[in-house]
Nucleic acid binder design. Sequence first.
RNA 1: GGAGGGAUGGGAGAGUGGCUAAAUCCACCAGACUGUAAAUCUGGCGCCCGACGGGCUACGCAGGUUCGAAUCCUGCUCCCUCCA
Length: 386
Amino acid sequence: MPFFTLTATDRHARVGILRTPHGDAPTPAFMPVATQGSVKALDSADLRNIGATIVLANTYHLYLRPGVDIVDDLGGLHGFMQWHGPTLTDSGGFQGFSLEHLRRITEDAIIFKSHIDGSEHTFSPEAAIRHQQRLGADIIMPLDICVPADSDKDTAAAAVDKTHRWLLRCAETHSRADQRLFGIVQGGMFPDLRRKSAQFITNFGFPGYSIGGLSVGESKQAMYDTLTLTTPMLPVDAPRYLMGVGSPEDLVESVARGIDMFDCVLPTRIARNGSLFVKTGRLNITAARCKRQYAPIEEGCDCYTCRTFSAAYVHHLFRAKELLAYRLATIHNLRFILRLMEEMRAAIIAGDFADYRREFHSRFAPPDERTRRDQKQKWLASFGRG
RNA sequence: GGAGGGAUGGGAGAGUGGCUAAAUCCACCAGACUGUAAAUCUGGCGCCCGACGGGCUACGCAGGUUCGAAUCCUGCUCCCUCCA
């Protein structure tokens, strides 16, 4: 059986199936993020119950703690976290971006100063692959270089070239036939760089293609434009994975542009901070108006939280800082996203994805983009990074 | 009965003549979070106004000193500790 099969298309939007040694995952697929071997606040039974089919973990974090040898000893990621479905690991490339001030990049590797204890760790392309082979995920990523959205063209071009050189080294090191190594397209917001990257990478015939370097500070329009341009350059018969994306509106827009796989911390992170997805947008559950909302968070939602508890209860749990708040909120947000994926797949199969997309945007209001940008800056500043 | 100490904004608690509508923390109100250094962060938080400025009322109560008082003085009320 092939690794990936397309089963339906509706203009650019696609439905398919991903086959791995640990089971299948229908696409478009959303992968909840289990950075350190756990989708924060949930266990694998919860994941199964909300309909997750494939999850993502992070090589850098698991390498630092507990160490890939321990994960390996316990049967790899699957045995370690007792999730027996499909898995994917990120290489640590993104930490070269998110932990910018804790690393330096040479021709050979990304050299990190551990965010845990300050110790130094060299992530070469080869090491990133070796570690991922021990973690044992079904799909693995090459070590790439991700640059901020406002990078100038020289910076973005240099990152693309190095990503390409590293990709070859990763492919050379990669030896486990049961793990699929994807290629990653970079290129910042520059159409010609994206084109160049897509051409280079597709030349080598990877089983799947990731689009990296998006959702790194650019406007939504810039991201959508880059996707519109990049996706058609990738082979139709391989899965396209948009890395790190995940707001409901972005998922819909990306599926419309032909993306098959996603991962994002947004649903789980904002859940822990009391922001919950509902039909019309986001609901801050800690808001005073929820104190006496005896109805569920979202009427008609099929998640465990909404089937069982009132919004007032979840509101109370957050106010009281009860740990259950994080689990119930995470279950709700992930279920919202996974249901969104299910609905999109159904709409594509039915051939009315355009209607679904229109209907979605007519009711779902994302946060104001200016506010997002301003708040994000302040957030980074609070970390001592501007 | 005697000797001390104390009363500050919703709570705790700084502040002992102007830089104080009053630190800080909590609570409260609102917002943000996109391949997770994130159960985090950012604002707001006396009242009023034609508001990136202005006015009014405020630090137990009542007076007083001073150009100016939460801060000094007098009296009162209440609270706490110790001694009898």
